[in-house]
């Protein structure tokens, strides 16, 4: 049972305050949907929680441990961010999986096979052997998400993870993520209603 919490988070960009005094709490089995207009700081919030971008103020803990206590590398692996538009890496998705598997922070092998996982979302196994440059946005999205899910993080931070997927793949992804601790940014209100157990609204600020 995971318990993730953040208190008093603040972030501004170029003197413009995106959010301040923001607190959130998440346990296993919950999906916190984050909504808000473009530019309201949804992605920066996720990246900040993942330890990929600085957060201006506030504290966060995973099962009571702050990132400094856990070590930032371990924090990132446990509180894992998946970008909306996963990058085109060198080589194939299979090479990417191998690179991730051999990181020092990956102390044990992947608990689940990402290829099997993504197959449930309609991503054919041979796709993993194709260069990233040849993959569509939806294929990259599924490959990146499958590896993230297969590495079994405590919290998944997903930035519009199904924005490039068809309705069948979208609902299969939603099904696979059920029961985990997820912070899910989406513009799709129907999806927010389907997956969200709670909602966080970020406002546009001048």
């Amino acid at each position: 049972m995971t318990s993730f919490s953040a208190h008093g988070l603040a972030r501004s960009v170029g003197g413009r305050v995106l959010f301040e005094g923001l607190s959130l709490q998440l346990d296993t089995g919950e999906t916190l949907v984050v909504r808000g207009p473009s530019g309201s700081g949804k992605t920066l919030l996720l990246r900040g929680l993942a330890g990929l971008d600085p957060i201006g103020a506030g504290t966060m803990t995973l099962d009571g441990a702050a990132p400094e206590q856990l070590g930032w590398g371990r924090w990132r692996r446990r509180v894992l961010f998946v970008a909306q538009d996963p990058p085109v890496h060198p080589g194939t998705p299979h090479d990417w999986v191998e690179r991730v598997r051999h990181l020092k922070a990956q102390t044990s092998d992947l608990p689940t096979n990402p290829v099997m996982l993504a197959a449930q979302w309609g991503l054919a196994a041979p796709t993993w052997e194709q260069p990233w440059t040849e993959l569509s946005g939806g294929e990259r999205q599924r490959a990146a998400l499958a590896l993230a899910l297969a590495s079994d993080p405590a919290v998944l931070l997903l930035d519009e993870p199904t924005s490039a997927l068809d309705p069948e793949a979208t609902s299969a992804v939603e099904e696979s993520l059920r029961g985990r601790a997820v912070i899910w940014v989406t513009h799709d209100s129907a999806q927010a209603a389907r997956v969200g157990t709670r909602t966080l609204e970020l406002r546009a600020r001048p």
Binding site: A50, R76, L103
Partner: peptide, 18 residues
């Protein structure tokens, strides 16, 4: 130019050297 690639591997717990 490839910040997204670096961030993606950092997200899996890579240290700066990795």
């Amino acid at each position: 130019e490839h910040r997204a690639q670096v961030d993606a591997i950092l997200a899996f717990g890579a240290d700066p050297w990795e």
